[in-house]
């Protein structure tokens, strides 16, 4: 299962790789990373069919996670559309509502609970 993680913080990458160390080793999951919405869209142009799940931060410089979500839903509607989970440090009602309205499948708050995330992955 290929997962794209979009976050402007570079250190998110080793964090995911270590947290999912066992899963990666057993080839249950595979990670790719983008540091901005723009980079994510570029990546998806070629590989949207491979990616099953997109985890995106909302609060990024330039294109925000919400904008990225809107683009994903507009540009890649072909079934099956990727699952998109939004991640934010601002876990308030307004943010949640906005993300769900734009078509997010789930909404996670920072700091990320990796055990919860792993549970959610199992149901995909």
């Amino acid at each position: 299962m290929k997962i794209l993680v979009v976050d402007d913080e570079e250190d998110v990458q080793p964090l995911f790789l270590q947290r999912f160390r066992k899963e990666i080793k057993s080839h249950e999951v595979e990670f790719d990373f983008a540091q901005s919405g723009e980079e994510a869209l570029n990546y998806l142009k070629d590989k949207h069919s491979e990616v099953v799940l997109i985890l995106s931060d909302i609060n990024m410089p330039g294109m925000s996670g919400i904008e990225l979500l809107t683009h994903i839903r507009e540009d890649f509607p072909t079934p099956p559309p990727p699952v998109v989970m939004m991640i934010t440090a601002y876990g308030d009602e307004e943010n949640y509502k906005q993300a769900m309205d734009k078509g997010a499948d789930d909404f996670l708050t920072k700091p990320l609970d990796f055990n919860l995330l792993k549970e959610k992955l199992k149901t995909l």
Partner: peptide, 13 residues
Amino acid sequence: HEIQNPLNFVNNF
């Protein structure tokens, strides 16, 4: 926000 981010990394790592 600026403090929360590094703290999350400290906790996670």
